[in-house]
Design a protein around this nucleic acid. Structure first.
Lengths: 208, 208
DNA sequence: TGTACATCAGTGAACGCGCGTTCACTGATGTAC
DNA sequence: TGTACATCAGTGAACGCGCGTTCACTGATGTAC
């Protein structure tokens, strides 16, 4: 097995090089305006990947399988990126400011992932939506863990803390599009996000 | 002019019957899974509207014009619906509970409008996104007006009040998809929305 | 009042094109003996 | 060690189909005189 012919995207899962190329191409094309994963054509995707259109059938039996694989790829990249955001934020003097800044770095380094994420999240009743909702829940879970471990918020009700963390996670992902749309206004956006997060926790504390 | 051949959708603007049929068909089709306004085909749309595919060219020069008209239709229906929500909420004993309940009624009466709204809101750099962001801003504006008129929230900072109202509006629209997805869980969702709104205002008050 | 003409929504046939899918093939790598 | 075979990613031609678009036409309504 030639090691350069494979790509190791995350968590040690190694996909055939062509399969990975097709998934990457699908994500690149789905991030374009007015597109979604399911509206990307098979031939277009193969063209973008630099492969013959029939190579698709070597890796996927039906187009639907590509959707699932792409959703998993998005989920894995988001989870890995957010883990790094949390790791760096932990070393920052202000946990909230750090989390927001490193999150925005992550968004700007991988805009297309966030664009696709936001789009597919709104596909009702789709299995992709379920995967992405699971990702948001996972991120909220891990945020709660970090908050508890470092005693960042004086909130005893674990359910309320989780709900607030989930709301904040949703908010950050929704507003990531504003950063991609108008990167020049990053500073104002960062201030808004920090203020929003502070308000959320203050409100949760006050509501008890 | 035959009055039954025309439809009066909103604000007294009367569109030719065929044009309105095409817009309605486009919205119906765009609300399906994995679809968006721009991915609806011209022939499919005409078929759905019960018209010849060429009739499209009688009303729109290019497909892009239909997108704009559909976005305007969505905007008008949302604005009108929210006005009604606010009017009914004002008569309710608890303004927050009333607003949430009547909002959820509105969502369930017009699910496809909310599905399309959520999807098109995430189309970066599209003129449709600008229209829909304007709608959200307008709704937040009018909420602020109502809050001030009835002295519902003790918040002096008008900018902060607007930001919180906008965040809440965004939250309501984002979570409208959960109601469409799982209508049986409406009661829990309503409780979550009310709690979220209360937390937001409490947090804003506490942050001053 | 009637007649002629312009306007306009809607129709149906025809076009070229890119799509998804199938088929038969290639060439490299791994495996059995 | 060499030889034969299986596996598998990738290729290229061909198919039928629905798409967007153009064209010439119809039939109803409104308008000028």
């Amino acid at each position: 097995m030639n090691p350069t012919s494979k790509k190791q995207p995350h968590e040690g899962i190694v996909l055939p090089a062509g399969k990975q190329k097709l998934i990457d191409a699908a994500l690149r094309l789905a991030a374009r305006d007015g597109m979604s994963l399911s509206s990307v054509g098979l031939r277009e995707m193969a063209r973008e990947a630099g492969l013959n259109h029939n190579t698709f059938y070597r890796h996927f039996q039906r187009p639907e399988e590509l959707l699932q694989a792409a959703a998993d790829e998005v989920a894995a990249q988001i989870m890995a990126g957010m883990k790094e955001v949390r790791r760096r934020a932990a070393r920052h003097a202000d946990a909230t400011v750090g989390a927001v800044e490193y999150f925005l770095d992550f968004v700007q380094a991988n805009p297309q992932i966030f664009v696709v994420f936001a789009r597919e999240l709104n596909c009702i009743a789709s299995p992709i939506r379920a995967v992405l909702l699971g990702v948001l829940n996972g991120i909220a879970d891990e945020s709660v863990e970090q908050i508890n471990a470092r005693n960042l918020v004086p909130l005893k009700d674990p359910e309320l803390l989780f709900q607030v963390s989930l709301d904040i996670t949703n908010y950050l992902f929704a507003r990531s599009l504003d950063l991609i749309d108008r990167p020049k206004e990053r500073k104002q956006l960062a201030a808004q996000l920090v203020a929003h997060i502070r308000r959320q926790f203050l409100g949760a504390i006050a509501s008890r």
